[in-house]
Design a protein around this nucleic acid. Sequence first.
DNA 1: ACCTGAACACCGTTCAAGT
DNA 2: ACCTGAACACCGTTCAAGT
Lengths: 228, 228
Amino acid sequence: MKNTTPPAGRRSSALTHERVVGAAIDLLDAEGEGGLTFRALAAALETGHGAIQWHVANKTELLRAATSATVSRAVGTRDSNAAPNEAIRALALNVFDVMDAHPWLGRQLTGSPWQPSMLFLFELIGREIQQICPRRETQFTAASAVLTYIIGAGGRETANAQAPEATGDRLDLLDTMASFWENLNDEDYRFTRTMGEPLRTHDDRDVFLAGVDLIVAGTMHDRAPAAV
Amino acid sequence: MKNTTPPAGRRSSALTHERVVGAAIDLLDAEGEGGLTFRALAAALETGHGAIQWHVANKTELLRAATSATVSRAVGTRDSNAAPNEAIRALALNVFDVMDAHPWLGRQLTGSPWQPSMLFLFELIGREIQQICPRRETQFTAASAVLTYIIGAGGRETANAQAPEATGDRLDLLDTMASFWENLNDEDYRFTRTMGEPLRTHDDRDVFLAGVDLIVAGTMHDRAPAAV
DNA sequence: ACCTGAACACCGTTCAAGT
DNA sequence: ACCTGAACACCGTTCAAGT
């Protein structure tokens, strides 16, 4: 039911590294991180679970491969004619959407930092930052900050969506949460109490993009490093 | 060896929620996330593992309690006389250091987003943001962005430190990595290739703080939301 | 070279039974 | 109310054995 891409020429017994990773992604999407098991994978691929471990040694290696494939598949094509800040926005949104579509990506990307996928994103971000500010140290800082923010925000978003409370309607949940905020005690939460309405009416992608804009804007106004 | 805080008055058999959480933190610090087991906890507390589950039902609940205790213990006292941007810097550094001292915190904080610990941090950040910009929507955006960035960066940092490659000297590792960057192929990585030197010479905390400054700076220059 | 499946050590959770 | 420990279902990993 799940092997959407049989090699079509070969018998289905041709178990390749690629097919294993593909099936792993399908399983992760359908059942979440806890659903990816060597035994479940074996069942989906109609083979023994030892067979799989001949192609993929570890579960770590399997998760890494699934992550790499998913990210590079989604961020492959880019528009090089856009203005730097627009290009960064588009890339950020791209990553945000991939993480939204594959909720298991968050823990994976935040978990092991300098995977090939991350280096690739760092490069794409950096090329745009390069056109915004001239100093190399600031470029390094800004590209790191944008990457950190994008991955962190995406992970937070999907963790939010996966939370057990998030089963019902999104608007209901936000409304409940906003009311909770507004009724916090004034002494300890005098700021959060005023954030009920923004929380209720905000759009996830807008807030996410606004955060990206803040970093980019800060980068454009950057001066000497010591003079804050 | 690990029960550093015996209640001193009571017999050691007084197993409280607090003692369980304390022992869990000790274990997490010493052995990492994988080292926290109900069986290991039972051994450390000299009891059966069923006894523990009477005080703490789930492993999820246990991790949540450990997180909450660690964060609030570390961010408790704040200096209210500092300028907003300085206060945010100090708070950010505080969080960064806690996450550095307890490397298991990263996955925990990024994993489940609106824990009490996170709400508390959101509040502290928001109080300062409030003094920087007047618009409520921007306050919400900026506070969210700073929180996301701080947690994300801390998690990335400690994931970095925990990586299997990071066993040797930090400078050696950075040097190896910088050389690797400089030798990437020019077609795909023309930006990253130029980042070898910044990577080699950067200070983790400085880069982290610089990222915080970028967001704060962007917030101060914020204008109408549509006019980017 | 590729695949099989039994075996091992370990885990979180449950639960009848004690005090 | 608090604690015990056996039992259950499940996991990743290993490995001798087949083709």
